[in-house]
Design a protein around this nucleic acid. Structure first.
Length: 533
RNA sequence: GCCCUCGUAGCUCAGUGGAUAGAGCACCUCUCUCCUAAAGAGGAUGCGUAGGUUCGAUUCCUACCGAGGGCGCCA
């Protein structure tokens, strides 16, 4: 790869001018073309500690580099306060094209960051007491995209959904169904959503309301998640922890570790030993466990199933819970880094110009399946993946419906459709692609062609960063940029038609490489790549 | 009061410590006898405030201002 060869050349040059090369040679792509194709700040970064002046050092480096330029390098230049900029020949991009084609959709930008590490990703995990509301789509889209990114970067991923199927909420849910069916008074804090009426009407008279409702909710959840293309490997029942004795065993483990004490008739976990700001009750004075104990037992179970890393994706409303769960897991002897909790800001839904409250227990509910029904799975998913999980996402349901044809997903899909259109035209004209080695890629010198290749060359780095930052939206941004480059190319550079046959051949391969790029990018996001629109 | 996230263009948002901060939408112009005009080209405005670290800060740190969320022997 070009980046490695430039770094190697810079190391050698540094050594030659008497400076110990740093462990990391920083190379970046300047935002402005006149600053070269690649740029390094090594001169500025190392000058001070070596008693040199940045610009002078850069000058020395440039002289060394230009004396015997690395592959593809036209020349090195000094710029600004001491950047070393590399102007490359177009051949480096032709190499990128060949690399993309050789690796193909299966292997281009496939990285081995994870080294086969087994990762359990738990997400959504909405209570099985009703359908999934539209805001929950954010966790579904994010979680699944993150899983796809982890898979592409060498992790073995397990998708898991945790069902809180025991305790107060389930009882309340069952009682609400029963009351609605019998026409009696709702329990205090009962579930009053519209779906309760519908489900109560469906429920057989002899059914156990809680048990029936649980199954009903579970299949509802499964269906609406499948509707956005998300499927889980495991639906884990909290009740099963109680049934198997795992909760008691976890308590015994914690006792054995000496991190438990009793006070005021309750059992406490000394989470302050692990960075929490106060200790937490795990068994109430009435003998019932708090929410925390089964949760620790659940994570204990996940570790026991052999995962190297657990990732939980939670809404920011659970922020206060992070330190106590992490403490609980550490109390069992796991390293802090073995449990990663990703917090995301909640989605705000706007309907008729007003914020819709997202509560199953309150009246109005906007369902994920309704959102998907009105805009489609692709628009829904990409919309959720447009921005960082750290920012609050506002979705105006009237706007997203009315303007779904302005959604960026169509911009990207249209580019992909145009690729297929070119393929169809080529087939009609009886043009077939010659084998790559027989094609002269050096004919690709148009700025639009080169821009497209530059963007493609970024994909491996984008995937690596998206993985490291747990940030699928970086892939979204890249795919949109790729679409931008492709539309520009499509507009200015005809593939079929009034162009020399050799150029048609080179461009057909360029188009193929773009298709590989879209294929990878959209697959990572879980968005479909239609052949026609 | 304490903790977390955010504050970038009129709006919605990108922006791995780099050079002149970018997209989309909206607004105004152009461009289809030729691979899909769901496209392309051109046009204005911006890093909440004040300090600090750094050769260099939208990015890191501190304080303040503003928005959202969280601080139970609830789940």
């Amino acid at each position: 790869m070009i980046r490695d060869s430039l770094a190697t050349a810079l190391r050698a040059a540094l050594t030659e001018v008497g400076i110990e090369p740093p462990a990391e040679i920083h190379l970046e792509r300047p935002s402005r073309r006149e600053h070269g194709d690649w740029s390094s700040n090594v001169a500025m970064a190392t000058a001070k500690n070596n008693g040199r002046i940045p610009r002078d050092l850069a000058g020395e480096l440039v002289a060394v580099l230009n004396a015997s330029p690395p592959a593809h390098v036209e020349r090195a230049e000094i710029a600004g306060p001491g950047f070393v900029n590399f102007q490359l020949r177009e051949t480096w991009l032709h190499d990128v094209l060949a690399e993309v084609i050789d690796a193909g959709e299966a292997n281009y930008a496939r990285l081995d960051i994870g080294g086969g590490k087994a990762v359990n990703v738990e997400f959504v995990s909405a209570n099985p007491t009703g359908p999934l509301h539209a805001g929950g789509g954010r966790w579904a889209a994010f979680g699944d995209a993150l899983c796809r990114i982890l898979e592409r970067t060498g992790h073995v991923v397990h998708r898991e959904y945790y069902l809180n199927d025991r305790g107060v909420q389930m009882g309340l849910f069952g009682a609400s169904l029963a009351a609605r069916q019998a026409g009696t008074d709702m329990p205090e804090n009962g579930y009053v959503g519209e779906y309760i009426k519908e489900w109560a009407a469906e429920m057989p008279a002899d059914a156990d309301p809680a048990a029936w409702g649980y199954e009903r909710a579970k299949s509802e959840l499964r269906e609406s998640l499948a509707g956005v293309g998300v499927e889980f490997d495991t639906w884990f029942s909290e009740q099963s922890l109680a049934d198997s004795g795992a909760i008691d065993a976890t308590l015994a483990d914690l006792r054995a570790k000496g991190v438990v004490f009793e006070e005021d008739g309750a059992v406490w976990l000394r989470t302050t030993d692990f960075g929490d700001d106060k200790d937490r009750v795990i068994v109430k004075s009435d003998g019932e466990p708090t929410y925390l104990l089964p949760d620790i037992a659940y994570h204990r179970d996940k570790f026991a199933r052999g995962f190297d890393l657990l990732i939980d994706i939670w809404g920011a409303d659970h922020h206060g819970y992070v330190s106590r769960l992490k403490a609980g897991v550490q109390a069992l002897g796991h390293a802090p880094a073995d449990l990663e909790i990703i917090l995301g800001q909640l989605v705000v839904l706007i309907k008729n110009g007003e914020e819709v409250r997202l509560s199953k227990r309150a009246g109005e509910l906007v369902l994920l399946e309704d959102l998907v029904a009105s805009v489609g799975a692709d628009v829904a998913r990409l919309t959720f993946l447009l921005q960082s999980l750290d920012t609050r996402q506002t979705i105006d349901l009237d706007l997203i419906t009315a303007q779904s044809n302005e959604n960026p997903v169509f911009y990207v899909q249209y580019a992909n459709a145009r690729i297929h259109s070119i393929g169809r035209k080529a087939a009609e004209a009886g043009i077939t692609r010659a084998p790559l080695p027989e094609v002269d890629l050096t004919l690709l010198v148009h700025e639009r062609e080169l821009d497209l290749l530059r963007k493609l060359s970024e994909l491996p780095e984008v995937v690596a960063i998206a993985c490291a930052d747990r940030a699928p939206h970086k892939v979204t941004t890249w795919v949109r940029e790729l679409a931008d480059r492709f539309h520009g190319f499509y507009h200015d550079c005809y593939v079929i038609g009034d162009v020399p046959p050799e150029l048609t051949q080179a461009r057909l391969w360029l188009v193929e490489s773009a298709q590989i790029g879209f294929g990878i990018g959209l697959d990572l996001l879980g968005v479909s790549a239609p052949e026609a629109m």
